[in-house]
């Protein structure tokens, strides 16, 4: 078994690993970096649970080999929390709006939503549904997830008050 040295950054920390070429980025994150927040559902690019951000773009970590991430900057769900451990506004919104039940799909949902709000902070519900269509959830029926992302978008753009329903 020939291993290859790879160096990349995960959530701002530099990691150096020796991996088999066939090791997926998802497995390297979970098994070699101990970051088990990235979940593996289908392992062939259908469910979206393993979505992470690689060099600013969303990627399915099961469809990328760790050797391909050499020199890249990777953000996982563990990178969302603040330095003092507080939850990201997206995570707060998922809690507040029933954006999760069992939580298996949640890391992928959060990372896809993070990219969506980074690129389109004022995304409307239709855009949210379209952009999140690559992430499958079997619990929530998606309604709470769309609510949560919409609310987090308002929070992040500073329009939280305006969107409160009128009395």
């Amino acid at each position: 078994m020939i291993e290859t040295d790879v160096t990349f950054s995960v959530n701002g920390e530099r990691v150096r690993l020796a991996v088999e070429p066939r090791r997926t980025l998802a497995d390297a994150l979970r098994e070699d970096c101990g970051l088990t927040g990235t979940h593996l559902g289908c392992e062939h690019g259908v469910c979206g649970a393993c979505t992470v951000i690689v060099d600013g773009e969303p990627a399915r970590a099961c469809l990328m080999f760790a050797v391909q991430a050499d020199g890249s900057s990777v953000t996982t769900v563990e990178g969302l929390q603040g330095t003092d451990g507080e939850l990201h506004p997206l995570q707060e919104a998922f809690v507040a709006h029933h954006g999760l039940q069992c939580g298996f799909c949640t890391p992928g949902m959060l990372m896809s939503a993070l990219h969506l709000l980074d690129t389109t902070p004022d995304a409307d519900r239709e855009t949210i549904r379209e952009e999140m269509s690559g992430n499958i959830c079997r619990c929530t029926g998606y309604q709470g997830i769309v609510d949560a992302i919409e609310a987090a978008g308002r929070e992040l753009t500073g329009h939280a008050e305006e969107a409160e329903p009128a009395e």
Binding site: G45, G48, T51, E57, P58, A59, R60, L63, M64, S112, H115, L116, E131, S133, G134, N135
Partner: peptide, 9 residues
């Protein structure tokens, strides 16, 4: 084509 993460790669 596919979804956002697929189109990104």
């Amino acid at each position: 084509i596919g979804h956002t993460a697929i189109r990104a790669r």
